[in-house]
């Protein structure tokens, strides 16, 4: 019984609105600190790579962007699932809130991958397995957002895009492995994956801090955008009027 209370509370817009408002600053400042330190550590303190020299520093934004695009997709699919199964409107709002963020970072991952590939591979685009599956992920995001915007009715948009997100998330591993399989048939191991010894800690720590920073950033954006969605969706609810009249925003 008690274990489920928190879950039901998560379904209540006033509760979520307050919680998200309370946590958002922590996430936001945490993200700022981590990203600033991570960039400093990665761009200034870390030694150049023995093979790729200073070009490897692109990893400090490329890899976290890839991580963020995947973790946003997962968040979206989990939220969509919760929204469909338990008919929780707030979960649909969360899925809607996080999709554009994930799409933008999928794009950043592709663009920085291309910028990294240029000096390393000699071309702007190589049909590298990881880049290709990232590209397909971007297409999945675009399809999701297009489907959402093609429905005028909010409930219908919520529920159909939720079905799509779930179909997509089942497909993501299949796409991923099929692209790897395809890639390994047509070319050898990629340059980026070349026999690299494990990273020394002065390289690794800033990278991990960047991962943490991007994750905190995702949580901050999720909180803020979710609050905006709640304000839009619950605009006629009494609790909301009381909440904003009391000055608690």
């Amino acid at each position: 019984m008690a274990t489920w209370t928190w879950f039901h509370k998560l379904g209540s817009p006033p509760h979520v609105y307050r919680i998200a408002g309370r946590f958002a600053p922590w996430f936001g400042w945490g993200a700022l600190l981590c990203i600033v330190y991570g960039l400093f550590g990665g761009l200034v303190l870390a030694p150049p790579d023995y093979q790729q020299k200073d070009a490897f520093r692109i990893i400090y934004v490329h890899a976290p962007a890839a991580w963020l695009s995947l973790s946003c997709y997962t968040t979206m699919a989990v939220a969509a699932f919760v929204g469909l199964v338990w008919r929780m409107k707030i979960a649909h709002a969360a899925a809607a809130a996080i999709a554009p963020v994930g799409a933008s970072f999928a794009f950043v991952c592709l663009a920085t991958g291309s910028l990294w590939g240029r000096p390393m591979w000699g071309t702007w685009w190589e049909w590298d397995a990881r880049l290709t599956s990232q590209l397909i992920l971007l297409f999945l995001y675009l399809g999701y957002m297009a489907l959402r915007s093609a429905h005028d009715d909010l409930q219908r948009a919520d529920r159909s895009s939720a079905v799509l997100a779930i179909v997509g998330v089942v497909n993501v591993p299949i796409i991923h492995y099929s692209v790897y399989w395809w890639n390994s048939l047509h070319q050898g191991a990629t340059v980026m994956k070349a026999d690299r010894p494990s990273m020394p800690s002065e390289m690794l720590v800033p990278l991990l801090v960047m991962f943490l920073g991007f994750t905190l950033f995702q949580l901050w954006v999720l909180c803020t955008r979710l609050r905006a969605e709640i304000l839009e969706r619950e605009r006629n609810a009494r609790w909301l009027q009381e909440q904003i009249r009391d000055g608690a925003r």
């Binding site: 397909i136 297409f139 999945l140 675009l142 399809g143 297009a146 489907l147 093609a150 799509l164 179909v167 997509g168 497909n171 299949i174 796409i175 099929s178 692209v179």
Partner: peptide, 12 residues
Amino acid sequence: LLSLLVLPLAMP
């Protein structure tokens, strides 16, 4: 829209 949704899923 249909092509946009289905084609990425059809890549495998």
